[in-house]
Design a protein around this nucleic acid. Structure first.
Length: 295
RNA sequence: GGUACCAUAGCUCAGUAGGUAGAGCAACGGACUGAAAAUCCGUGUGUCCCUGGUUCGAUUCCAGGUGGUACCA
């Protein structure tokens, strides 16, 4: 498992490692999985994918419904197949919740019906969060006491699950720690924060020199899709809708990418199983894999 | 060279009728169970340019210095 903040160089480090072990890569990236947005997500290029076979890159459409549970299922199925051929396989990505679902498992909850979600969204818009909170307090007082009541998504989702199952959401949250039939070695990539931010800022400029604007322009009719509520696209849609200048959009993409990197580091920091490396220290990573790998 | 104005947080700037200071942005820290590149919460981080003077006390007043800007030469 190679993880780390956006822009740190997971893709190239992962390719070097996978080549070294003559192996393959399963991506753990909630946005590179969509085939329509390779530029803004800095997905591995066709050239890179020739060097090492990649899975779950561009395998889905922005119109598909996808989530962490489905990722867990897809990635587990793939790994089962691939372990028949390879002794070691690599997972490379930075989507925290996807990685967590793959490593530790995630509760099997029903997919939320579109009508239920739409109905609650309407209620939220018209009556405000307080009304959803009251509903949650009634349906699941336990969860009401532990949830972040200021976070609409959390509150709404809990109510959704209560409605879908007819049971309190808190009863369905078992916080699983599933055992996997394979060993997981976690390699985290990190570097000086200022250098990382420089890399991120420059990568955004490189994307703009590339085809990011064209990519976003081509998707403008789908701008409401969740898959496009993504750094790089939401800002460009603002620009293409004449809400902000192009320069402002670029600044915002850079800033939001930095914020995202910080958030990823904040999440990964509390996982004590992660072995941290500078992205250039590939030899040390190989050494770690060789010494900790149990046949 | 002369005159005027300015110098406070990473940046742009407020302010203190003399009691060591605060906004916006940036930054930093955190939460996280099917939307997660999402969503949400928290935190001022400071030789108030330097050296003297007045004062119980100076970032604030005074003098000189340094740097910047504008105008005049």
């Amino acid at each position: 498992m190679v993880l780390g903040p956006t822009g740190i160089g997971k893709t190239s480090a992962g390719i070097i490692l996978a080549k070294e072990f003559n192996s393959v890569i399963i991506s753990a990236d909630s946005r590179q999985i969509y085939k329509e947005i390779p530029v803004g997500t800095a997905a591995p290029t066709p050239d890179q994918q020739v060097l090492v076979p990649h899975y779950l890159i561009g395998s889905h459409s922005i119109h598909d419904y996808y989530n962490a549970f489905e990722f867990e299922q897809d990635a587990l199925k793939l790994s089962e197949l691939l372990f028949n051929i390879h002794d070691i396989i690599f997972m490379v990505g930075g989507s925290m919740m996807y990685i967590d679902a793959f490593c530790n498992g995630i509760d099997d909850l029903p997919t939320v019906d579109d009508q239920v979600r739409q109905g609650l969204m309407e209620k939220y818009k018209n009556e405000g969060i307080e009304s959803i909170r009251r509903q949650l307090k009634q349906l699941d007082p336990d969860f009401y006491n532990q949830v972040d009541l200021k976070n609409p998504k959390r509150v709404i989702h809990a109510v959704e699950i209560c409605i879908m199952t007819g049971k309190p959401y808190s009863q369905l949250r078992t916080n699983p720690r599933k055992n996997r039939p394979f060993q997981i070695i976690k390699i985290g990539l990190d570097m000086d924060r200022g250098q990382l931010y420089d890399r991120i800022n420059q990568r955004v400029l490189a994307m703009m020199d590339g085809n990011l604007e064209k990519e976003a322009f081509g998707l403008i009719e789908h701008q409401k899709l969740n898959a496009l509520n993504t750094v790089g696209y939401k800002e460009l849609f603002e620009y293409l809708n004449n809400k902000i200048s192009k320069e402002k959009a670029i600044e915002l993409i850079q800033r939001n990418s930095r914020h995202y990197a910080k958030k990823q580091l904040s999440w990964f920091r509390r996982d004590k199983e992660i072995n941290w490396f500078h992205p250039s220290h590939v030899k040390e990573m190989i050494e770690l894999i060789k010494t900790s790998h149990i046949n």
